[in-house]
Design a protein around this nucleic acid. Structure first.
Lengths: 104, 104
DNA sequence: CCGATACTTAACCACTTTGTTAAGTGTAGC
DNA sequence: GCTACACTTAACAAAGTGGTTAAGTATCGG
């Protein structure tokens, strides 16, 4: 049930602290759903769905092994949003962030 | 009414194509709300709220001038998510994206 | 002052998100 | 086969999102 990978999906998947923590954990290598759930004080179904969201966004691959499901990080969507961000690399940002108190 | 700037807010703000288009437009410099709305087949209140979301995320500053409100891009939240993404720079990505058909 | 302009705010609706608990599915071990 | 384990799916509720139209608020131009 993998949905279409889009910037919407990727940004949306990352707009949640639990999901960001999960993929940060996955930098260190594969983990089962249970292992991913352990650090969070949240029900397993909740974590299961977070993982599904990450999977739909193409950020996580699953591999079944016995009764466990091992999750692995996929970084290509991250590269896509990184590429999108590069479009702002050369924007002439207002130097000092003067909110309006300044010279006017 | 500027809310707290968080990764959640920034990623959430970017998880919408209309809002991404708006800030892409703002790379080219300030624009009024009306100018930002013009390319979109959507009501002005809808655009107005999109801009508020961007503002709450710290991605847009507003400046009133007469009856117009000029919007300007702020890139620091983009830098923050860029910094967050860098945490994945050295992840040993699975080389070829073998979904399970492979060597096992 | 009066009407037009450039918005914002309010009220509403449909849909999605994010959590819960309860029930279901499949594998493991005896 | 039976029970425990490692999940997923279903059903639900509360809150958030994203659009609409209608009404409100300043400002400008005459």
């Amino acid at each position: 049930m993998v949905k279409y990978r889009t910037l919407d999906g990727t940004f949306g998947a990352l707009a949640n602290p639990t999901r960001r923590q999960i993929i940060l954990r996955l930098r260190d290598g594969e983990a089962s759903v249970g292992e991913l759930a352990a650090p969070h004080r949240m029900s397993l179904p909740a974590i299961s769905r977070h993982i599904s969201v990450l999977e739909d966004a193409g950020l996580v691959f699953r591999r079944k092994e016995g009764r466990q499901q091992y999750c692995r990080l996929a970084t290509s969507p991250l590269n896509e949003i990184d590429a999108w961000l590069r479009r702002f690399r050369d924007v002439p940002e207002m130097a000092t962030e003067e909110t309006k108190k300044g010279t006017r």
